[in-house]
Design a binder for these strands. Structure first.
Lengths: 251, 251
DNA sequence: AGGTAGTGAGTTTGGTGATCTTCATCGCGG
DNA sequence: CCGCGATGAAGATCACCAAACTCACTACCT
């Protein structure tokens, strides 16, 4: 009955200790939802059943359901039960939701949408960043770029640096809405490119363009920055196409 | 409705049986945070104190805090307490968060950011909508436009129709990321324009441009749609400038 | 006699409060 | 000066009550 084994690798990174346990039943339920174990649009088990299923008390289940509800994954109706919401009601710009979707993200047609959004937003963000970025932010970008450049053999480190780069770029646009979208880009980069390890072939070009973007920002060159961002995204399109080919083959 | 007088935790012991408490308590705490009663960056009262302050049991408080935490407003550390997060960690693209911020939204520099984001995103969304909108969606847009046109004297109805128009437009772009941003636009329109009733002077022009956009979508005219969206946003910029003047004067 | 509407039992979520556990913090003593 | 325990606050569970929705059963009206 200990269905506890359904959890993934738990992001063992930097987990100082593990004294604290199953407070994140929330993630387990969410991942089960994403995995379509609870089909979208139809009811979840009763709270008491969920207690047994996940081996925790009803209080914990209820807290988890509240969180899930607050993110639009489920809708709890007073005394009828909790039903899984349709996917387009989910708060897919929430970092946690993206994280829960994780590997299932490709079943959601999200990667294309995110890339499309990036093509729209990142050039504009780069332009704003060109006139608003602080010296600190440019330095951070430079550092991320160096890490990309220097992480020759390690796709892990490369992707981390890439994510960091784009996050800082959006932050440097000093637009709170853009900034919030970094979680989506994070997820896209992490689960599309990193998972398929495709980016290697474009790595050289990517490093080049990222570097040019930093330089443009340093020069406060708005049109140059926008131009670089566009070229960056051309590469991303290529990456995604390659990744999708791999995914299609794997499936 | 919400004029229940929740300015403070008036409802200590004196209130008798109260159903549907949790949602209200969550909103109350969130609004108290937005109102800077709990200053950003510093600790909230202890859970037991919050029970008394809001007149509910600890379970409810904990569920509320979990929801708030899941939206990035607070961060609860294991045995030290719950602290209010910095504002740029808040999930400002969440509809509920926007709603809680409500009137305080202008203390946030959010309106400008949202408008900036709209200037970036809506033209692109219009372009995508031009090639992807379903007949139903175009019909919905048309209906919203008619409501805008016909709501002569009522700013209420006009704003509702305007919000609906832009929501449907983003939906019609068939991009899940764009679609999610409608809550932000909703909040911006509701709390900036509607609150200040400024839009009246631009109403004629706005109706015109919205109508042209519908026509462009019907013709699947991508560049035309983008052009209309841009002109629409020029008007929005004017509206915001006017609204900010009013706000500044009021303050 | 048949169908509908009202009622009542049962079920399920919402909310309360007590209790136990687990550690982070802090102060006391070695 | 360091560690060791007391304290206190959050994490978690349990038992219970309240309210509202479901469903079925019955009784009444046509």
């Amino acid at each position: 009955m200990e269905s506890e084994g359904q959890s993934r690798a738990e992001t063992s990174r930097s987990s100082e200790r593990r004294p604290r346990v199953r407070r994140n039943v929330t993630a387990a339920i969410a991942q089960d939802i994403c995995a379509d174990r609870y089909p979208s649009g139809s009811p979840l088990p009763r709270e008491n059943d969920l207690c047994e299923l996940y081996g925790v008390s009803r209080t914990v289940i209820r807290e988890s359901l509240k969180v899930l509800e607050s993110k639009g994954l489920v809708r709890g109706k007073p005394r009828v039960g909790t039903t899984v919401c349709d996917r387009d009601e989910w708060n897919i710009l929430d970092a946690e939701v993206l994280d829960w979707m994780g590997p299932y993200i490709k079943d959601f047609d999200l990667l294309g949408c995110i890339l499309e959004a990036r093509r729209t937003i990142e050039p504009a963000a780069a332009e704003y960043a060109a006139e608003r970025a602080s010296a600190q932010e440019i330095a951070d970008l430079d550092r991320a770029w160096r890490q990309m450049r220097d992480s020759a053999g390690e796709p892990e480190s490369f992707t981390d640096a890439d994510v960091m780069f784009h996050t800082v770029l959006l932050t440097a646009s000093h637009n709170q809405v853009f900034r919030r979208l970094s979680s989506a880009i994070h997820a896209a980069l992490k689960y599309a490119l990193h998972a398929s390890n495709i980016a290697v072939e474009n790595r050289e070009d990517a490093v080049l363009v990222h570097g040019e973007l930093v330089e443009a920002l340093r020069m406060r060159d708005k049109t140059g920055a926008r131009e670089c961002a566009n070229r960056m995204l051309d590469l991303a399109v290529r990456d995604l196409a390659a990744a999708e080919k791999v995914i299609g083959r794997t499936k």
